[in-house]
Design a protein around this nucleic acid. Structure first.
Length: 291
DNA sequence: CTTACGGCCTGGGTGC
DNA sequence: TGCACCCAGGCCGTAA
């Protein structure tokens, strides 16, 4: 479910309610195989106060400070700052709700807050990730990620893309190249830029790269404005669905008419993922198979 | 280093 | 109704 616009929407929702709140308790379900070191959550989180929430691609980082941060001895560098890293995977949901509200199935983490509410993490498939970040680990994480698609310059984008020989679809979804793009927004951006998903990064023309840069920026900002795409089960931190799925031009439109040229949208596996495109206005590269 | 691919996990939809 | 099969917005580890 969640790509950059969905995660941004969740983060904005959390920023309205979490900063200043204190975590008073932690409860985990029996299935914590997707959590790195579950015991560290129970050890580190209680008693901390939320300082802010940041997003890096599809990762959320909740900043936390420990009250009277000097209490822990023998840790010279410890200034009381830690962070909670969360990734929603395919089916993760974060909701802040009254503690007495009914608990949906597959809810695996409950953070009790000092205002009587709970931050809950629900994830059917458990492809998400949760872990504590200590000093330096946050920089290490960011260092492994590529450019932020909304902050990169056109020059940086061109340099990054045209120096790679992989298929453009794979490049856009590779979090070490760009951070935040997933299957939906990649297909939508490629359609806008009239570029076939199987084209190779090195073979894109100057004007195609420029069109793609603009397409990505447009798709992502519009999707954020619509509070993300709810294709199946995405909801924001208030449990609300997004609306950008109403504006999809190719995603899940196999067999329907292209909004631009009237061609028939096709579906094919590219870079291991289901990919939607218009074979008429997104010309396939030669060689390989044609479509 | 880069690129390609299978696997992880559960549920919903489809076709027989 | 039951059941096998395919599909799903993510990432990671492995192999070439």
């Amino acid at each position: 479910m969640p790509e950059l616009p969905e995660v941004e929407t969740v983060v904005r929702g959390l920023r309205l309610v979490l900063p200043g709140r204190r975590i008073t308790g932690v409860r985990l379900s029996a299935k914590t195989d997707f959590i790195d070191d579950p015991a560290s959550l129970e050890r580190e989180l209680p008693g901390t106060r939320v300082t802010g929430i940041e997003r890096f691609g599809k990762f959320m980082v909740i900043g936390l400070e420990r009250e009277g941060g000097l209490e822990r001895e023998g840790r010279g560098k410890d200034d009381g700052e830690i962070a909670l890293l969360m990734h929603l995977g395919m089916t993760g949901q974060i909701v802040v709700t009254p503690a007495e509200a009914p608990v949906p199935p597959h809810t695996h983490m409950f953070l009790a807050l000092d205002d009587g509410r709970e931050l809950r993490y629900t994830d059917i498939r458990r492809f998400g990730r949760i872990r504590i970040l200590l000093d330096g680990e946050r920089e290490a994480l960011i260092g492994r990620l590529g450019l932020d698609p909304l902050e990169m310059s056109e020059g940086d984008f061109r340099e990054t893309i045209t120096s790679r020989s992989a298929q453009i679809k794979a490049l856009l979804m590779d979090q070490r190249v760009l951070r935040g793009m997933g299957n939906i927004y990649t297909d939508e951006s490629l359609w806008r830029a009239k570029i076939h998903p199987r084209r190779l990064g090195t073979k894109l023309s100057e004007r195609e790269v420029k069109a793609l840069y603009k397409a990505i920026h447009g798709v992502l900002t519009e999707a954020i404005r619509s509070r993300g795409s709810s294709v199946s089960d995405y909801v924001d931190s208030d449990g609300q669905r997004g609306e950008f799925q109403l504006r999809h031009r190719v995603y899940q439109r196999e067999g329907k008419k292209c909004f631009r040229c009237g061609g028939v949208i096709r579906r094919a596996i590219v870079a291991g993922r289901s990919s939607f495109f218009c074979p008429k206005c997104q010309r396939a590269p030669r060689s390989k198979r044609k479509d």
